[in-house]
């Protein structure tokens, strides 16, 4: 059991160690529906980390997302972004996902940086 736990720690990627600059380029993919500051077709990303999925007030979520019990952090984002429809069946985020784990890591690093920036998200 303890060996498994240690091995898990060794192989587990640190999803906060991406390149935010590269991640900003990946974020351009999200701009059809999302922005940092504003709710659009998708909810805003300011304040994303630590937020419960489906909890931005006044945004109309799918029932599936509201019931998901996800708290957004680097690991839950990594899991979700790889295949949104698999992780939350019934989500309105009709997107196949980002299969390249390096791109996901970069995107998550950018989201972490930008969504907590006092300039962008006062």
């Amino acid at each position: 059991m303890s060996v498994f736990f240690i091995l898990s720690l060794v192989v587990s990627a640190d999803n906060t160690k991406g390149n935010p600059e590269a991640g900003q380029r990946v974020y351009a993919r999200c701009l059809a529906c999302h922005s940092l500051e504003r709710d659009r077709t998708g909810p805003r990303h300011c304040g994303l980390f630590g937020r419960k999925a489906g909890s931005v007030s006044d945004f109309e979520y799918s029932a599936a997302m509201q019931k998901s019990s996800i708290i957004w952090d680097a690991d839950t984002l990594d899991h979700f972004l790889e295949s949104p429809l698999t992780v939350v069946p019934g989500t309105t985020m009709g997107f196949a996902g980002i299969k390249d784990e390096n791109k996901r890591r970069d995107l998550i690093a950018y989201l972490k940086s930008a969504s907590e920036s006092s300039d962008i998200c006062p």
Partner: peptide, 17 residues
């Protein structure tokens, strides 16, 4: 341009599913 670029990605992400 930002909206159109995002739209390309959105459709690219929808086509496989």
């Amino acid at each position: 341009a930002g909206l159109e670029r995002g739209a390309v990605s959105a459709y690219a992400g929808a086509i496989p599913i």
